[in-house]
């Protein structure tokens, strides 16, 4: 399974918001099975994909993420019976909204990964990482990231603690 190390000009920052019952456990399985996958995803564990507020994704982009991945249990498998059904509707709307806002929708990934699907997990992470890497930095938002950088002068080493 091992992959050679390839250097790229651009390494994307990717945020992951995942359900703890399925995807996070799937990631655990991938880890304990010593599977290899891209290290670009910073994962946040949440109780359910239904808990993933689109606000999280907006915030992730505002904080400099180049791509965001959302993942949860397959339909019918939700620990809370229906959370992922709500997530599915909400994200359908949210993707369209982000697209209308002018975000390349390829930067936003939604997937169902169960606790047993460690291989699917590594594949999706790798594929999405490559996809975002090909898109390059999220220039639109990156330009807004630090609104006041040009206003600063000197750094005084004052300490207060």
């Amino acid at each position: 399974m091992s992959k050679g190390i390839v250097r790229h000009d651009f390494e994307p920052k990717i945020m992951g918001f995942v359900c703890k019952w399925c995807t996070y456990s799937g990631a655990d399985l991938a880890g304990t099975s010593r599977m290899d996958y891209s290290p670009h995803v910073r994962m946040v564990r949440l109780p359910c994909s239904g808990r993933i507020d689109p606000q999280f994704v907006i915030k992730a982009f505002e904080q400099g993420a180049d791509g965001v991945i959302i993942s949860g249990c397959h339909p019918g498998d939700c620990h809370y019976n229906e959370g992922n059904y709500y997530a599915r509707r909400r994200n359908l709307a949210f993707r369209n909204l982000m697209e209308f806002n002018g975000i390349d929708i390829k930067r936003l990934e939604f997937s169902w990964i169960s606790a047993a699907e460690a291989i699917k997990f590594t594949q999706i992470i790798d594929k999405f990482t490559n996809q975002v890497r090909d898109l390059g930095p999220n220039e639109g938002y990156r330009a807004l990231l630090d609104p006041y950088a040009s206003r600063l002068v000197k750094s005084s080493e004052e300490s207060a603690a």
Partner: peptide, 29 residues
């Protein structure tokens, strides 16, 4: 996506607070 028009019925729930098990999921991997 959900064949819903807001403001025409007091009974039909708004689409994002309900679901169908066979909702569209073409965008999901």
């Amino acid at each position: 996506s959900f064949d819903y028009k807001s403001g025409y019925s007091m009974e039909v729930k708004p689409p994002l607070i309900t679901y169908n098990t066979d909702d569209q999921e073409t965008y999901i991997r």
